[in-house]
């Protein structure tokens, strides 16, 4: 059992990072903190893809006559694009956070919900 866990060590690290990111996203109300958590979650996915592509004794997938074993290039390609797209979407999220801050004056989820409820009550009251 222990040996088996050791052979899957890379997966354990991935799972730990993923859970940490998930916890930040669920438990923290601050929108920027949530985005940081989301990017940690994202890096755990990078690791999940890259780690199985590694071969012991292999080198980076740049062909040269003196090497025979290469690590798997396919996950590298996928994750390369994922990182750049990831930062673009992170920036989009930050832009949304900035706009929310301008509209509500806060980026705490609880306070935003409270403000929303208050406004709904205000809108409902004149009808009564």
């Amino acid at each position: 059992m222990i040996g088996e866990l050791f052979e899957h060590f890379s997966y354990l690290v991935t799972v730990f990072l993923m859970v940490t990111g998930l916890y930040i996203v669920i438990a923290r109300g601050n929108l920027i903190k949530k985005l940081v958590g989301l990017s940690i979650f994202q890096t755990s996915v990078y690791l999940l893809y890259i780690a199985p592509g590694k071969l012991l004794g292999g080198t980076a997938p740049i062909l040269a006559p003196q090497y025979g074993i290469y690590s798997n290039p396919l996950p590298h390609v996928l994750i390369l694009t994922a990182i750049v797209v990831g930062v673009a979407t992170l920036a989009l999220g930050l832009a949304l956070a900035v706009r929310i801050r301008e509209a509500y004056g806060t980026i705490e989820e609880d306070e935003i919900t409270a403000l929303d409820n208050a406004r709904q009550d205000m809108e409902r009251d004149p009808d009564r």
Binding site: L35, I50, I62, S71, V84, G86, L94, V98
Partner: peptide, 26 residues
């Protein structure tokens, strides 16, 4: 893990650009 291309991107994007962006948003 032999992913040199990815590491380069991660260092430039993760540590460079996204830190600047987060600071700007902060």
């Amino acid at each position: 893990l032999d992913a040199v291309d990815v590491a380069m991107t991660e260092a430039a994007v993760g540590a460079g650009i996204s830190t600047v962006l987060l600071l700007g948003a902060l």
